[in-house]
Design a protein around this nucleic acid. Structure first.
Lengths: 129, 129
DNA sequence: CGCTTGATCAATCAAATGGTTGATTAAGAG
DNA sequence: CTCTTAATCAACCATTTGATTGATCAAGCG
């Protein structure tokens, strides 16, 4: 996957949506997001509830960071991880974009069925396929 | 991977969320979702815009189906694929759940900052989990 | 300075994934 | 029945990923 497939050379690197959805596809990373929603935390704090090493958690955070979902700052030798709520909102925006289209289409179809419209009008409206 | 092993009982089995986010992590599958938002379609119709075989598209649809994002029915020898808007809504619901928590926390923090709080203390206030 | 803590880097390994080609099933059409 | 179309199944290959262990780096602390 991730191959160009179009010859235009535009899709060279996986975009932010790829990384963001991929990041949330893992239960450990989702748990990290859940934890971070309540406040910033360090790698060690995040690693504690799980039966995986800190190195693994560090990698997970790298994934979340490259997906733009979290940011990291410096506080002495600690590197607190911060959840970016705006990035989450961009995800829901993408999903809703198509969800709303599908729902409005469903509502229109529902109306047609309720109104018992003439076959010709139905055929017209059905060109949205 | 995908192992809970934490005993906290948060995420146990290969969840629907896993599959759903994983499904949307692929640009081809997102394009399929975008196309399906405008109406049901067959494998061949979906495969046409892409430089991949119909078998590959069939696999993508299987992934989307196991993620609960689409359903398939029978129409003679055709098997139209249908987008499940409710499944998309469940995804946004999960994201928003934590996005809203993070945002409300940010607003509280914002209020604290407005009350003349130095950046160092900001990190300490972060302990309001 | 050496020592401890927090975090990352590096090499490695098993398992999963995306895609392909080729064969096969399901349902109609001639 | 034979042929065509739609779609899936099956075997296979290349790449990627998650996780581990061991070493390394960075920043205080005694």
């Amino acid at each position: 996957m991730t191959r160009d497939a179009s010859g235009s050379g535009l899709d060279r690197s996986p975009d932010t949506l790829d990384r963001a959805f991929m990041a949330l596809a893992d239960p450990v990373r989702r748990a990290i997001v859940a934890r971070l929603s309540r406040g910033d935390a360090t790698v060690n704090e995040l690693a504690e509830p799980f039966a995986i090493t800190k190195q693994a958690v560090s990698k997970h955070i790298q994934v979340l960071e490259q997906a733009g979902l979290v940011t990291r700052s410096r506080d002495a030798q600690r590197r607190p991880v911060h959840l970016d709520a705006a990035a989450l909102e961009r995800l829901t925006a993408w999903i809703d974009q198509y969800r709303l289209i599908a729902e409005s289409r469903f509502r229109r179809l529902d109306q047609l069925l309720a109104n018992d419209t003439s076959p010709q009008e139905q055929a017209k409206k059905e060109e949205l396929k």
